Computed example of a mutant assay.
Amino acid sequence: MSVPLSVLDLSPLVSGDDGPADALRRTLDLARNAEQFGYHRYWVAEHHFTPGVASSQPALLLGQIAAVTDNIRLGSGAVQTGHQTALTIVEQFGLLDALYPGRFDLGIGRSGQAKNEVLREEAKHAEPQEERIVDGLLIPKPFSWAPIFASQRTALASSLLTLPGASSLPLNEVLDQIVALLAGPVGDGEGNEVTAVPGAGADLEVWLLGSSGGESARTAGARGLPFAANYHVAPAKVLEAADAYRESFVPSATLSAPRLMVSADVLVAEDDETARRLAAPFARWVHSIRTGFGAVPFPSIEEADGYAWTAEARALVADRVDTQFVGSPQTVAERLRTLQRVTGADELLITTIAHRHADRVRSYELLAKEWHG
């Protein structure tokens, strides 16, 4: 029996677009369609200062999606803990749950600033890794985000995302606060109590997201929480992330056994050739991300055809391009089943981008029909 499929949406802008309003309206339309196609969840990302992405405030966007859908689970992929307090996160998602009870996943991830600190430490102990095939699944050479996180542009963005003098709490401390606020009144041991309203008692499914076998994977396991590993962002680290999560797992009141979701870049069309043509701009889009300036509006096929590639530029995006699942419904479903088998995923999170909205919607439709038979 096939595992569930879910959707991750960045609300991408496309070249020639009128702007974020169009991208957000397309998100609402895609969410309605995803529900009709039988997808299990619909998650939205949190990205800031990215010219080609309109999904910057997950809770606000999820409220709009909830208003135009009926039953599909909705969530964040992920709220970045370094940019707001635990109370703000709990109040936002508590409000959503109060209006649309029992439908929301609170997906949590570390902010870029916090990741940079951890990446520096992990890099000291990392073993060189070459591209390899594991039981049919491509595990490419890893890409290092450290230069981007250490750039002046990232520093500027971080200064605008945090209050002066503020610093990110460690992940475990943030989670302790979130769990306590969701559970009910929080006290100081001296008879004083405060309660998050809304928020306390909210029926939320808390997830952690991660791109390596580091802190997020280990914390999710140790706390007995579900975990989402990013094959689409960091394909080189997906098996490391899955193994670290399972090895760290301790049963909890939430889960008696590990629950793993794995993401994948996907584009489906009626046949392999059409799909490859529609996917042609993907490399140019990834290159804009990998050079540290943030994703550009997704290019058209004609713009992608005219892009002057160098060998260095191709190498910069090779891991993402080579691990995008592109083709007919049968071709892509087979590759996704390989991803599921090798990682042992209990669910797959599909992220698809195309220049024409109709092609994007059609990709999700074709995949769902093939996947569910």
Rank of each mutant, 00 (worst) to 15 (best):
E303F: 10
T351V: 10
S288R: 03
L62N: 01
A220F: 13
R320Y: 12
D346C: 02
V286Q: 11
A67R: 08
V250S: 12
T88F: 08
P226H: 04
Q324S: 03
S300V: 11
Q36D: 01
Q152S: 15
D29T: 04
G373V: 04
G292P: 02
S363T: 06
H47R: 05
L260C: 15
L336N: 09
T85Q: 03
F282C: 08
L138M: 14
L278S: 00
E247Y: 15
G107A: 04
E190S: 12
G102L: 05
G201A: 07
A23S: 15
H83P: 11
P51V: 06
T343M: 04
G199H: 06
E122S: 04
V7K: 06
S144A: 13
H287T: 06
L367E: 07
I133A: 14
G184C: 12
E365F: 12
E370C: 05
E370H: 03
G306M: 12
F93C: 07
I178C: 06
R360H: 10
G165W: 12
G109P: 03
F104H: 05
G52T: 09
A155I: 10
V179L: 13
Q324V: 09
S256R: 15
D359Q: 10
P329R: 13
N192K: 13
K124Q: 13
V262Q: 00
I148S: 09
L156V: 08
L60M: 10
A98L: 09
N71R: 13
Q113L: 01
S159G: 08
A234C: 09
H40K: 02
A98V: 11
G224S: 11
A229K: 14
E302K: 09
D105L: 01
A67C: 12
R341A: 10
T254W: 09
V326M: 04
V262P: 00
D265G: 02
A269M: 04
D271Y: 06
S2N: 14
P164G: 03
Y364P: 04
Y42G: 00
A59Y: 08
P198E: 05
V174L: 07
V118H: 13
S158D: 14
D188F: 02
W309Y: 05
E240R: 00
F49T: 01
G94V: 01
L138Q: 04
A229S: 11
L106D: 10
Q129L: 15
T69S: 05
V174G: 00
A279P: 03
E205G: 13
G213D: 00
A45S: 06
V14S: 02
D29E: 14
P140N: 15
H47V: 13
E302T: 03
